Simulated scan of single mutants.
Amino acid sequence: MMRWLLLLARWPLPLLHALGWVGGWVVWLLSPPYRRRWREHTRLAGLRGWPRWASVGAAGQQVAELPRLWFGPPVRVGWEGAAHIEAALAQGRGVLFLTPHLGCFEVTPRAYAERFGRAGAPITVLYRPARHAGLDAVLRQARQRPGMAAAPTSLAGVRQLMHALRRGEAVGLLPDQVPPEGLGVWAPFFGRPAYTMTLAARLAQQPGVQVLLAWGQRLPWGRGYVVHVQPWSQVMDEPLAADAALAAAQINRAMERLIARAPAQYLWGYARYKSPRPLG
Rank of each mutant, 00 (worst) to 15 (best):
Met1Gln: 14
Met1Trp: 11
Leu6Gly: 01
Leu8Glu: 04
Leu8Cys: 12
Arg10Trp: 13
Trp25Asp: 01
Pro33Lys: 10
Tyr34Thr: 15
Arg36Gly: 00
Arg36Cys: 01
Arg36His: 07
His41Trp: 01
His41Pro: 02
Thr42Leu: 05
Arg43Ala: 15
Arg43Lys: 15
Leu44Ser: 06
Leu47Gln: 10
Gly49Thr: 09
Gly49Lys: 07
Trp50Gly: 11
Pro51Leu: 03
Pro51Arg: 01
Ser55Phe: 02
Ala58Leu: 00
Ala58Trp: 01
Ala59Gly: 14
Gly60Glu: 02
Gly60Tyr: 00
Gln61Val: 11
Gln61Ser: 05
Gln61Ala: 03
Gln62Cys: 13
Val63Tyr: 12
Val63Asn: 04
Arg68Tyr: 05
Arg68Phe: 04
Trp70Arg: 12
Val75Thr: 12
Arg76Gly: 04
Ala82Tyr: 09
Ala82Pro: 14
His84Phe: 15
Ala87Phe: 07
Leu89Thr: 01
Arg93His: 12
Leu96Thr: 09
Leu96Gly: 05
Gly103Met: 08
Gly103Trp: 10
Cys104Ala: 13
Pro109Arg: 11
Ala111Arg: 06
Ala113Pro: 12
Glu114Val: 04
Glu114Ala: 15
Arg115Asp: 01
Gly117Trp: 06
Arg118Trp: 02
Arg118Met: 05
Arg118Ile: 01
Ala119Gly: 12
Gly120Phe: 15
Pro122Gln: 13
Ile123Ser: 11
Thr124Cys: 14
Leu126Gly: 08
Tyr127Lys: 08
Pro129Met: 15
Pro129His: 13
Leu135Gly: 07
Leu135Phe: 14
Asp136Thr: 03
Leu139Gly: 03
Ala142Cys: 10
Arg145Ala: 15
Arg145Cys: 12
Arg145Pro: 10
Met148Pro: 14
Val158Ser: 03
Arg159Ile: 09
Leu165Pro: 06
Arg166Thr: 12
Val171Asn: 11
Leu173Pro: 00
Leu173Ser: 03
Leu174Met: 05
Val178Glu: 04
Gly182Lys: 06
Val185His: 01
Ala187Trp: 01
Ala187Thr: 03
Phe189Cys: 02
Phe190His: 10
Gly191Ser: 08
Pro193Val: 09
Thr196Gln: 00
Arg202Ile: 12
Ala204Tyr: 10
Gln205Pro: 11
Gln206Ile: 11
Val209Leu: 13
Val211Arg: 07
Gly216Pro: 07
Leu219Glu: 15
Pro220Trp: 00
Pro220Glu: 00
Pro220Asp: 00
Arg223Asp: 08
Arg223Met: 10
Gly224Met: 08
Val226Asn: 02
Val227Met: 03
Val229Gln: 10
Gln230Met: 12
Met236Thr: 07
Met236Ser: 11
Met236Tyr: 07
Asp237Cys: 08
Glu238Met: 09
Leu240Ile: 13
Ala242Asp: 13
Ala245Leu: 06
Ala245Trp: 03
Ala248Asn: 02
Ile251Ser: 02
Asn252Trp: 00
Asn252Ala: 00
Asn252Ser: 01
Arg253Gln: 15
Met255Ile: 09
Arg257Asn: 04
Ala260Cys: 05
Arg261Gly: 08
Ala262Leu: 07
Ala264Leu: 07
Leu267Glu: 08
Leu267Trp: 09
Leu267Ala: 05
Trp268Tyr: 03
Ala271Val: 08
Lys274Phe: 00
Ser275Arg: 14
Ser275His: 10
Arg277His: 11
Leu279Trp: 13
